[in-house]
Simulated scan of single mutants.
Amino acid sequence: MNELKSEILINAGIRAAERNFSSAYITKRGDSDAGAIFVKIDTLDGYAKLYSRNLVYDFDKNKDLIRFENLYPNKKIKREDIDLRLAKEISIDRDCWVIEIEDKNGFNPFHNLDG
Protein backbone atom coordinates (compact mmCIF):
# COMPACT_ATOMS: atom_id res chain seq x y z
CA MET A 1 0.00 0.00 0.00
CA ASN A 2 1.35 3.43 -0.93
CA GLU A 3 -0.38 5.61 1.66
CA LEU A 4 -0.24 9.38 1.47
CA LYS A 5 1.67 10.85 4.43
CA SER A 6 -0.56 12.44 7.07
CA GLU A 7 1.18 15.81 7.05
CA ILE A 8 0.85 16.19 3.26
CA LEU A 9 -2.85 15.32 3.38
CA ILE A 10 -3.44 17.76 6.24
CA ASN A 11 -1.66 20.61 4.50
CA ALA A 12 -3.78 20.01 1.38
CA GLY A 13 -6.98 20.06 3.47
CA ILE A 14 -5.99 23.30 5.19
CA ARG A 15 -5.28 24.94 1.81
CA ALA A 16 -8.68 23.74 0.54
CA ALA A 17 -10.38 25.26 3.61
CA GLU A 18 -8.60 28.57 3.08
CA ARG A 19 -9.69 28.61 -0.60
CA ASN A 20 -13.24 28.29 0.75
CA PHE A 21 -12.60 31.28 3.06
CA SER A 22 -12.74 29.07 6.17
CA SER A 23 -10.29 29.24 9.05
CA ALA A 24 -8.33 26.04 9.60
CA TYR A 25 -5.90 25.16 12.39
CA ILE A 26 -3.83 22.23 13.52
CA THR A 27 -4.81 21.96 17.19
CA LYS A 28 -2.92 18.69 17.82
CA ARG A 29 0.12 17.71 15.77
CA GLY A 30 0.62 14.00 15.32
CA ASP A 31 3.09 11.74 13.59
CA SER A 32 4.05 13.29 10.23
CA ASP A 33 3.95 9.95 8.42
CA ALA A 34 0.98 8.24 10.02
CA GLY A 35 -1.45 8.52 12.90
CA ALA A 36 -5.19 8.98 12.99
CA ILE A 37 -6.58 12.25 11.61
CA PHE A 38 -9.61 13.89 13.18
CA VAL A 39 -11.27 16.91 11.58
CA LYS A 40 -13.53 19.03 13.78
CA ILE A 41 -15.80 21.40 11.87
CA ASP A 42 -17.09 24.16 14.16
CA THR A 43 -20.30 25.52 12.63
CA LEU A 44 -20.08 28.60 14.88
CA ASP A 45 -23.51 27.99 16.43
CA GLY A 46 -22.42 25.95 19.45
CA TYR A 47 -22.34 22.72 17.44
CA ALA A 48 -19.64 20.88 15.53
CA LYS A 49 -19.07 17.88 13.28
CA LEU A 50 -16.32 15.33 13.71
CA TYR A 51 -14.71 13.35 10.91
CA SER A 52 -12.07 10.64 11.01
CA ARG A 53 -9.81 9.44 8.20
CA ASN A 54 -10.47 5.88 7.10
CA LEU A 55 -8.80 3.85 4.41
CA VAL A 56 -11.21 1.95 2.20
CA TYR A 57 -10.31 -0.58 -0.46
CA ASP A 58 -12.14 -0.01 -3.75
CA PHE A 59 -12.38 -3.34 -5.59
CA ASP A 60 -13.49 -1.68 -8.84
CA LYS A 61 -10.45 0.60 -8.92
CA ASN A 62 -8.18 -1.97 -7.25
CA LYS A 63 -6.71 0.56 -4.86
CA ASP A 64 -6.97 2.03 -1.38
CA LEU A 65 -8.99 5.23 -1.05
CA ILE A 66 -8.95 7.81 1.72
CA ARG A 67 -12.35 8.68 3.14
CA PHE A 68 -13.27 11.09 5.91
CA GLU A 69 -16.23 9.56 7.72
CA ASN A 70 -18.61 11.66 9.80
CA LEU A 71 -18.54 10.05 13.25
CA TYR A 72 -21.99 11.47 14.09
CA PRO A 73 -23.80 11.55 10.73
CA ASN A 74 -27.41 11.81 11.86
CA LYS A 75 -27.40 14.23 14.76
CA LYS A 76 -26.16 17.61 15.90
CA ILE A 77 -23.41 17.42 18.52
CA LYS A 78 -22.47 20.23 20.87
CA ARG A 79 -18.97 21.58 20.41
CA GLU A 80 -18.07 20.69 24.02
CA ASP A 81 -19.06 17.05 23.45
CA ILE A 82 -16.82 16.88 20.38
CA ASP A 83 -13.96 18.31 22.47
CA LEU A 84 -14.50 15.62 25.11
CA ARG A 85 -14.42 12.91 22.43
CA LEU A 86 -11.21 14.37 21.00
CA ALA A 87 -9.58 14.48 24.44
CA LYS A 88 -10.40 10.77 24.83
CA GLU A 89 -9.00 9.96 21.37
CA ILE A 90 -5.78 11.87 22.17
CA SER A 91 -5.38 9.96 25.44
CA ILE A 92 -5.59 6.70 23.47
CA ASP A 93 -3.41 7.74 20.50
CA ARG A 94 -0.77 10.39 21.22
CA ASP A 95 0.25 10.32 17.52
CA CYS A 96 -3.15 11.45 16.23
CA TRP A 97 -3.77 14.75 14.47
CA VAL A 98 -6.64 17.13 15.22
CA ILE A 99 -7.57 19.77 12.67
CA GLU A 100 -10.17 22.39 13.51
CA ILE A 101 -12.07 24.24 10.83
CA GLU A 102 -14.50 27.09 11.40
CA ASP A 103 -17.20 27.08 8.76
CA LYS A 104 -20.79 28.11 9.45
CA ASN A 105 -22.03 25.86 6.61
CA GLY A 106 -20.16 22.81 7.92
CA PHE A 107 -18.05 22.47 4.76
CA ASN A 108 -15.45 19.71 5.10
CA PRO A 109 -12.54 20.48 2.74
CA PHE A 110 -11.08 17.03 3.39
CA HIS A 111 -14.13 15.49 1.69
CA ASN A 112 -12.84 16.85 -1.61
CA LEU A 113 -9.51 15.10 -1.03
CA ASP A 114 -11.14 11.66 -0.99
CA GLY A 115 -9.35 9.32 -3.33
Rank of each mutant, 00 (worst) to 15 (best):
H111T: 12
N2D: 15
E7Y: 06
V56A: 12
D83C: 05
S32D: 02
Y51V: 05
I66R: 12
G115T: 13
K76L: 14
K5I: 09
K76D: 12
L9F: 14
N70T: 06
F59T: 11
G30N: 03
E100R: 04
K78P: 03
V39I: 06
A16E: 10
I8Y: 12
K63C: 06
A24R: 03
A34I: 12
Y51R: 07
S32C: 11
E102G: 01
D81C: 07
Y72S: 08
D33S: 15
D114N: 15
K49D: 14
Y57E: 03
R53L: 03
G35Q: 11
R94E: 15
I8A: 14
L65P: 00
N62T: 07
A24V: 00
D103C: 02
F38C: 08
F59P: 10
L9I: 07
A24M: 02
C96G: 07
N112L: 14
V56I: 14
D64R: 13
D31R: 12
G106E: 11
A34W: 11
K78L: 04
V98R: 12
L71C: 04
R29E: 09
A17S: 13
K28V: 12
A12M: 13
L65D: 10
I99F: 09
D103Q: 00
I90G: 09
K28P: 09
D58V: 13
N20I: 08
D95A: 05
K40A: 02
A17D: 02
V98D: 00
I99G: 05
G30K: 03
R79L: 15
D64P: 08
I14P: 02
I10G: 07
L84I: 07
D60A: 08
I90L: 15
N11D: 05
N74S: 14
F38L: 11
W97E: 00
L55N: 15
E102N: 10
A17Y: 00
G13R: 09
D83S: 08
G13T: 01
D103I: 03
Y72L: 11
M1I: 08
N108P: 06
L50W: 01
N2S: 14
L84G: 09
I41T: 02
P109M: 02
L9G: 05
R94W: 13
V39A: 04
A24Q: 01
D42W: 08
I82K: 07
G106Y: 06
N20C: 08
N2L: 14
D45F: 01
N70S: 11
E102C: 04
G30S: 08
L86C: 05
I26M: 01
Y51W: 06
A24K: 00
L55A: 15
L71V: 02
P73H: 13
L55R: 15
R67I: 07
S52E: 03
R29G: 09
E18A: 06
G30T: 01
